[in-house]
Amino acid sequence: MFGIVGIVVTFAMVFGGYTLAGGKMGVITHSLPFEMMMIGGAAIGSYLLTNDGHTLKQTPGGIIRAFKGPQWKESDHQDVLCLMFQLLKVARENPVALEQHIENPTESPIFTAYPRLLADHEVVSLIADTLRSASLNYDDPYQVEEILARRLAGLREDSMHVPHALQNMADALPALGIVAAVLGVIKTMSAIDQPPAVLGGMIGGALVGTFLGVFLAYGFVAPLAGRLGGVVKQDLAFFDVIKSVLIAGLHQHATNLCVEVGRQAVPDHVRPSFNTLEAALRDLKKAA
């Protein structure tokens, strides 16, 4: 929502200010289709040339994700803490019973109670793989922490491909605008025998290329890349919460303490309160 508002405000202020200052939109609108064809086409072409198929497939979803905002809300953080509480409790009371939950999450009454979490393959895989390793006596907290750190680093690198690609496009757009402007100057020089009024319009049209490249770079693509990067980082913090609970569990801390460690790892603006989470855990204990 705020992303759309930001775009509207940017366009309104830039072109509104230009118009109020006495600028003529006719020069821009006349040159805009051709300049956009050159600049936008070159930007898309270089994007296709630079990035692999995986990044290209992720780009449309990444742009939509930038406008939708972070995937994980406060309720999701509370749900994952409750999920971890139940799984750790089962692991300590009946390790054999844990196997059915981590081997068939879609049939587990614990996982199916949280459909948003179950629908995310990476969340389920991270939890199940780590608990499976622990059940196979690979329970050195420090080694598991190192493995989780490497796994999350790989996930982070993969998730940041699209923001980095968009930022590279933003960096290239001003130069592509200059290319379009130079072509406009070449066109103008070929018509040097025309009267000043005609030449002025042609020079103005050439400068639209420079304006468009800079405007698209710093008014749209770079902010979009930054926004997407911020959303990705907020969503990746969700996995750090899971990691914190798992490591605390391997250190054999009390289950409630493991969950509290995870709660403290949640970003402040989506962190459930201690009393709210405690009430949810009490309900789980009563239901059990």
Rank of each mutant, 00 (worst) to 15 (best):
L126E: 01
R156T: 13
H164A: 15
T130R: 00
L88W: 08
G229V: 08
I186V: 15
G61Y: 05
A288P: 00
V5L: 15
N51H: 07
A181K: 00
N137V: 08
F34Q: 12
L152H: 13
G6T: 09
L49H: 06
A42P: 00
M38G: 00
V259A: 03
L224F: 05
A42Q: 08
L155A: 15
L236R: 12
V185G: 04
I186H: 07
T10E: 02
H251I: 04
V27P: 00
A237D: 09
G3F: 08
P272H: 08
S135W: 09
T29M: 09
K24L: 09
L87Y: 00
M189Y: 03
D140Q: 06
G209V: 01
V124G: 00
Y114K: 00
Q143S: 13
A181L: 06
E35A: 12
P272S: 07
C258K: 04
I39C: 06
L166N: 09
F111E: 00
I247K: 03
R263I: 08
A206G: 09
E146D: 14
T112I: 06
S159Q: 10
V90L: 05
V162H: 10
G6F: 11
L257C: 07
L183W: 01
A91F: 10
N275E: 14
L277M: 06
A280R: 07
L246N: 03
S133T: 12
L224N: 08
G200P: 08
V182F: 08
V198S: 08
Y218M: 09
D52Y: 02
H161D: 13
R263S: 06
L155F: 12
G40T: 04
L173R: 06
T29S: 14
L48C: 09
G226A: 12
K286F: 13
L136N: 10
H101G: 01
K73D: 11
V185K: 09
L284T: 01
Y138K: 12
I28A: 04
A254S: 10
V27C: 03
L250T: 04
K233P: 01
L32Y: 12
L117E: 06
V123D: 05
G69V: 06
S190G: 15
L199E: 05
A113Q: 01
P196Q: 11
T55F: 07
G6D: 03
G53L: 14
G62H: 08
P141E: 06
D240N: 15
L228R: 07
F274E: 13
G26L: 00
S46R: 03
M84E: 11
R227Y: 06
M169Y: 07
E103R: 14
A181T: 15
I7F: 11
P109N: 01
R227M: 07
M160D: 11
S135R: 11
I242V: 14
G262P: 07
A149E: 15
G184N: 02
K286P: 03
M36S: 11
M37C: 01
L212K: 05
L81K: 03
L83K: 04
P115N: 03
T19A: 15
L131F: 07
G230L: 04
V241Y: 07
L281N: 02
D129T: 08
V266A: 07
I64M: 14
K68R: 15
F2G: 15
S75C: 04
Q234D: 10
K286S: 08
T19W: 11
V214L: 14
A254F: 09
M202P: 10
A119R: 11
P163W: 05
V5Q: 12
H269S: 13
